[in-house]
Write a protein that binds this DNA or RNA. Structure first.
Length: 281
DNA sequence: ACGTCTGTTCTCCT
DNA sequence: TAGGAGAACAGACG
């Protein structure tokens, strides 16, 4: 479930449920989920830790504990599920990490594809983790300013879509919201980033901020729906314009939405609205 | 039944 | 060093 808006929604949900709880025990059922340190250290170090706060950076969750930062990335299908009491707990084959709290409640990390990762580092060292350190600005922050964005696009030799997906120019976009933002800005995903006109760059920046902002307000988007997972249950869903709408009419002009491959990723666009129309360079 | 696709990102290679 | 392919996994779909 993880682009920026979904992760933000999970963060809020988790904060509400587990802030100030103290960890009594941790069980790791699929060791590869824990990247650093060893599974034994991971479990040992977490005992007695209290969840002071939960933050988000790009698509990373950052649990601020008493003596550590726990970094969690959901990758493709990672989910958290909360059980208020032991009697209600359900462990299935995709439950890979179990956090038991001193009050008897539990937080489970489920991940069908096992791509998600957890990293435990010393207190306040989370932002130094390599995956977080290389992230571009948050799309809502002042850092994501037009001049800087434009300069990054001009320096690139790649298509605009793969560039937006790599997290370095701006953090938090994934396959869905990149397609949506490019549609709003009327930019073809395969337009070379360095050929975008200034007006296209302005439109794109606005579209990114707008699309992600609206998705955060809506509580994210669920493509495949699962029950009971944080950030999915009961949330409003953002209405998507192009993602997953292959052959449906473009909401702007009625032309059927096309699906193509761009850099290994399925890509949805309106072939009429989104023509490659940058300047030569 | 099999090939293809999937909300991600890391490593390896050129 | 930038960027493309493949990998890490499991399941849904036609």
């Amino acid at each position: 479930m993880p682009e920026l808006p979904e992760v933000e929604t999970v963060k809020k949900g988790l904060l509400h449920l587990v802030q100030h709880k103290r960890i009594a025990e941790v069980i790791v059922r699929w060791p590869k989920i824990v990247e650093v340190p060893t599974v034994d250290e991971f479990c040992q170090n977490l005992i007695g830790e209290q969840i002071e706060n939960i933050q988000r950076r790009g698509k990373f969750l950052l649990f601020k504990l008493t003596h550590f930062d726990l970094i969690s990335h959901l990758r493709m299908e990672g989910k958290y599920e909360y059980f208020p009491e032991e009697e209600l707990v359900q462990v299935d084959k995709h439950t890979h990490v179990i956090f038991k709290f001193t009050d008897g409640s539990q937080l489970h990390y489920n991940d069908v594809r096992k791509f998600g990762r957890m990293i435990l580092v010393e207190k306040d060292q989370g932002p130094l983790y390599k995956g977080i350190q290389k992230l571009g600005p948050e799309p809502t922050s002042d850092e994501f300013d037009l001049a800087n964005f434009a300069s990054n696009l001009q320096k690139s030799t790649s298509f605009i879509k793969p560039l937006l997906l790599n997290q370095k120019v701006v953090a938090g976009l994934g396959n869905i919201y990149t397609d949506e933002a490019l549609w709003f800005a009327k930019i073809h995903p395969q337009q070379p980033a360095s050929t975008l006109t200034h007006s296209q760059i302005e439109d794109l920046r606005e579209a990114i901020i707008e699309v992600l902002g609206r998705a955060v307000k809506a509580g994210g988007t669920t493509i495949r729906s699962y029950k009971n997972a944080l950030g999915e249950a009961g949330a409003f869903q953002l209405d998507l314009m192009v993602y997953g709408k292959t052959d449906e009419p473009c909401p702007r002009c009625g032309t059927p939405i096309a699906k193509i491959q761009v850099g290994q990723r399925g890509t949805h666009l309106c072939p009429y609205c989104q023509k490659i129309r940058g300047q030569d360079s």
